[in-house]
């Protein structure tokens, strides 16, 4: 088992994008591309981003959307060599990556979170498509259906967090 070059014919079913705030290191971003069975094809992670107190004050409420959407999200999506059919994130602020990508990006949360009008359920996960891009909703549903039913849509984020923790230890 190990690291190898991905064959060009392989298509990623799904991309999982998230960020982990890990004081005192900073903010790490992780982007995992998986196949239909949820197995990893590519993984990209950022070096930690540190934000000063002055920057926090100046960016105010826009800080997280800027960090997650533009700095981390857009950077990571640009690194992927495979084109997933859909990108899922578990952070609402990460949805601000949408202006920087043509891929449909949806929010995934556990089923116990209140759904929005356009939300739909997949197993224990609740998927919220972008309300301002209705054309993405059907594309999202179709893409997620290609994943094997047993793949838990919330679980890959735990893998990303575990990998980022591992990266901090080494």
């Amino acid at each position: 088992m190990g690291q190898h070059t991905v064959e060009p014919s392989i298509t990623a079913a799904c991309g999982f994008l998230t960020a982990v705030d890990s004081p005192p290191h900073g903010l790490f971003g992780g982007y995992l591309l998986v196949d239909m069975a949820g197995r990893p094809l590519e993984f990209h992670c950022t070096a930690p981003l540190k934000v000063s107190r002055a920057q926090q004050i100046l960016y105010g409420a826009t800080l997280h959307s800027h960090l997650h959407g533009q700095q981390i999200g857009a950077t990571l999506l640009a690194e992927g060599t495979l084109q997933p059919q859909v990108v899922l994130t578990d952070l609402e602020s990460m949805l601000h990556v949408r202006p920087h990508t043509k891929l449909p990006v949806a929010l995934v949360v556990r089923r116990d979170t209140p759904p929005t009008a356009s939300s739909f359920y997949v197993g224990t996960a609740c998927v919220s498509p972008p309300s301002d891009h209705p054309e993405h909703a059907s594309q999202l549903r179709a893409a997620i259906e290609t994943l094997v039913a047993s793949v838990d849509l919330c679980e890959p984020f735990e893998r990303i967090r575990a990998a980022i923790e591992e990266a901090q230890r080494h």
Binding site: G2, Q3, T5, G29, R39, E42, C45, T46, L76
Partner: peptide
């Protein structure tokens, strides 16, 4: 930010 990338078989 700098990005580390990994590809798997």
């Amino acid at each position: 930010p700098a990005v580390q990338s990994y590809q798997f078989r």
